[in-house]
Simulated scan of single mutants.
Amino acid sequence: MSNILLSVIIPTYNVETYIVECVDALLKQISAPNEIIIVNDGSTDGTLALVNQHYGHLPQVKIITTVNGGAGQARDTGIEAAQGEFLFFCDPDDIVVDGFVHELQQVFLAHPETELFCFNSQMFEEGQRHITRSKVQHNMVGKQASQQVFSSLLCNGSYTSAAWSYAVKRNLVEQHRMRFRDRVHEDHQFTLAAYVCSQHAWVSKEIYYHQRVRHGSLTNSRKSDDYFLQRYNAFMRAYSTLKVALGRSPLRKKLEKEYLMHSFRLMIYLSLYNGTAVPEYVVNAIRFLGGQHEPANIKEWLLIHRPHMFIRLQNIKVNKALRSAA
């Protein structure tokens, strides 16, 4: 067992505007031997100079520079360097609030079998920190089975594959050879594996993570056809991982269906909010994969058996929401 509780891994690429605020918030609660690993992913702005100037002298901060390869490769580099019991992947433009490390420490002391530390999160618009909306919202708290936590998030619609939505035991990551690898949509398989391969989770009732929604970021920008195809391929790889990882679990059929329903709705909404048609390969997957499961209600029946009608109905809701937001 390591005497280092936590390794925070921050992939950074051209984030000179945000990186100091992000790291300063973490330093309020992280001291040696816990560690912050900043992986400079070949930044071409002043990110590396700022990091070296502000944190190069601190014993709890490690700074690694790599050739630009994307956030997934940078996180994998951080994993190789990490020594903590838990790994936490923080994005360089977001904020972790006080209490996160203290609760993780208390939980690990009381429940050393914990493999996944989960918490709530919220989003804020750039320049409007005081205006927030919920992101990940857990319906259960305390000691839980990891797959039940996964199921709960899928059912309430707040599941995200974002790697910042939990801290995970490093031994679990190494045991299952979990890595990010891909340059885009790199966290789908990793996060899914974290939930289905672990057994013991702790769910905090607190909101520890504040996600910044940046103007002009991928989250807010118009997405290309290639983006949707890559997103679909990431979904299919993650779905295959789910089927293999669950094996003969009694929850296999339930979790497969919940993951499919959640993913189908998300891919539909991504297209509709983008103002583009839902790709036909998504519609075909809904019919084929969804058709292997019994719908629980009329909405699921429409989604599986009348996907085009379901999409038209959702488009009415989306257009109404967009008009209200304008």
Score class of each variant (00 low, 15 high):
Glu113Trp: 04
Glu35Tyr: 10
Val8Leu: 11
Val149His: 05
Ala326Thr: 12
Asn52Arg: 08
Lys169Ser: 14
Asn315Thr: 06
Ser249Met: 09
Glu80Ile: 11
Phe124Glu: 00
Arg181Asp: 09
Asp91Cys: 02
Cys118Lys: 01
Gly157Trp: 06
Tyr195Val: 04
Ala238Gln: 08
Ala81Arg: 15
Met267Ser: 02
Ile36Phe: 13
Tyr232Phe: 15
Lys317Arg: 14
Lys169Arg: 15
Asn120Val: 07
Phe88Leu: 04
Val96His: 07
Gln175Ser: 12
Met140Cys: 12
Ala245Asn: 10
Gly56Arg: 04
Asn297Trp: 03
Glu103Ile: 03
Leu50Lys: 15
Ile268Cys: 08
Tyr232Glu: 01
Gly72Arg: 07
Asn3Tyr: 03
Asn156Tyr: 04
Leu104Trp: 01
Ile36Gln: 06
Pro59His: 10
Ser221Gly: 08
Trp202Met: 05
Ser165Phe: 09
Val173Tyr: 06
Asp226Leu: 11
Ile311Phe: 08
Asn156Pro: 07
Gln122Asn: 14
Glu186Thr: 02
Val282Ile: 15
Gln29Trp: 07
Glu174Asn: 08
Tyr166Lys: 11
Ser2Ile: 05
His262Cys: 10
Arg231Phe: 12
Cys90Asn: 10
Ala163Glu: 01
Phe100Glu: 01
Pro307His: 11
His210Met: 12
Tyr281Trp: 09
Lys62His: 08
Glu300Cys: 05
Leu303Met: 15
Asp76Ser: 06
Ser31Asn: 13
Ile298Asn: 11
Val23Ile: 15
Ser204His: 09
Gln314Tyr: 13
Gly247His: 06
Gln73Arg: 11
Ser165Pro: 00
Gly290Ser: 06
His262Val: 05
His293Asn: 11
Ile63His: 01
